[in-house]
Design a protein around this nucleic acid. Structure first.
Lengths: 125, 125
DNA sequence: TCAACACATGAACAGACATTCATGTGTTAT
DNA sequence: ATAACACATGAATGTCTGTTCATGTGTTGA
């Protein structure tokens, strides 16, 4: 047996369906970690947030210009930026009464591009 | 001017805030494409769906075993699998009264691992 | 000082979505 | 045939969340 190698909970040997040739549960991603990942992906699961990211990846922009470029309410943009700021995905710089935002985490933009390519080669729905 | 190079809508020369040194809007991701990406990311934005993916990446499993391994309702698992199936992320194989699912799109699992690493090196919240 | 501006923030509303429950379909075994 | 099983599906429910509206804070210019 290689239960420990497979990181299997051995409190109870619950039986799997006999149709599968397996004798124990495969290791599942712990829920807390799964939840953190889900939060991260969910963060990118909004079209307007992605468009904001796409803009801020190229250049620095203030809230008002973002709103105009995206045809969004100033307040809506500000709320979204607050979210992105909380996750440390953007940094901001105050200049007079303007606040300029810029993409901080390039890792996110890599993910962005990865999925962009994925969509080109895969037919969704 | 390099407006066409930058793919800028030139119907109206709306003025940006003078604080930014820019004279025109940067190109934004088209909304429809952004929406497709958002749908894709949103799909991964659920802890239980991620856990299902993590299990099906390692091995083939039937619905009932998934439900037990994840401590979920059979119906809930089935609903989630329907979603994953619609997006062609999993494939299924019928064997008697069991239906075995398996991860089809390894690209998704790559993304999964990428974010997993990302979370280890970044403090979220 | 006062008005206009840029942005932030809180509450309220509406839409999306995951789960549950009840039910339906198809398969196996007696 | 019929009961038990494995899974799928539709409706209903509760929760989460993005936008809007109203308001607050801080800055600039007259």
């Amino acid at each position: 047996m290689t239960e420990t190698d497979l990181n299997i909970l051995d409190d109870e040997e619950t039986q799997l369906c006999e149709a599968s040739g397996k004798t124990a549960y495969p290791p599942a991603l712990e829920f807390v970690k799964a939840q953190r990942m889900a939060d991260f992906f969910g963060l990118l699961g909004d079209a307007n947030r992605l468009r904001i990211i796409s803009l801020l990846a190229d250049t620095e922009l203030c809230v008002g210009d973002l709103a105009i470029a995206l045809d969004m309410n100033d307040s809506a943009v500000s709320h979204q930026l607050k979210t992105l700021r909380a996750l440390r995905l953007v940094k901001h710089r105050k200049q007079g009464r303007h606040v300029f935002y810029q993409l901080l985490d390039r890792h996110v933009f890599d993910l962005y591009n990865t999925v962009l390519e994925h969509l080109d080669e895969t037919a969704i729905d």
